[in-house]
């Protein structure tokens, strides 16, 4: 009658331990730099969207999907009103100097503000498309600014980075990927 042992009674404790283990590993991932707000792109390994955008100022060469064919390239979604875009800008400049092709989508920006941004900080882009309505950004699945996409030679999206690119993102993710895709 007194001390009986029954496995069923251990079920709640076991469930708790399993759940705690899940939390533990999840917290570990977060501590290692995972952001729970990061959303994987729905377009990974899919062709980049088809679009055609005009340039920032009248008469500028725009940017369209055809530009992305035939080589590994970066597509960067930015705006002059976006403070983190300024943060990552020097890294974009550096990559451009190294000869990595970078294309820009200027998101919901005023032409003169965008031009001032580029005169002030430099222009790393081979071509820029002005997405005034934000529709092309929706086709890309853009939700945060800045966003940077790595496109392979076939014009497929291979990687998306949300938020400003920091030196370690460049060293650990973007550069190795560009290198691997370039082979």
């Amino acid at each position: 009658m007194t001390a009986k042992f029954s496995l069923g009674y251990f079920l709640p404790a076991i469930l708790t331990i399993v759940l705690a283990w899940v939390f533990w590993s999840y917290l570990g991932e977060i501590k290692d730099g995972k952001s729970i707000q990061d959303l994987p792109s729905a377009l990974i390994d899919k062709p980049a969207p088809t679009f055609k955008l005009p340039g920032i100022s009248a008469g500028d060469k725009g940017f369209d999907s055809a530009d992305l064919k035939g080589r590994v390239a970066l597509v960067n979604v930015w705006a002059s009103w976006c403070p983190p875009c300024r943060v990552e800008h020097p890294l974009l400049m550096q990559m451009a100097r190294e000869g990595i092709p970078i294309f820009g989508i200027n998101y919901k920006d005023k032409p003169d503000a965008a031009m001032r941004f580029l005169t002030e900080l430099g222009n790393p882009y081979q071509a820029i498309g002005a997405d005034r309505s934000g529709r092309v950004a929706i086709d890309w699945g853009v939700y945060g600014y800045p966003e940077t996409y790595v496109i392979d030679a076939k014009g497929h999206i291979r990687y998306r980075h949300v938020g400003p690119i920091m030196p370690h993102d460049l060293a650990e993710k973007i550069r190795p990927l560009i290198k691997a895709l370039g082979k």
Partner: peptide
Amino acid sequence: DPDRGVFILLLLVFVIGGSLTLYAIRAPG
């Protein structure tokens, strides 16, 4: 802050895990 999260998680395991283990041993009686 994930560091806090780790502390609370340990606290959870201690309080919930401990009490449910005690439950598993004693409740059949």
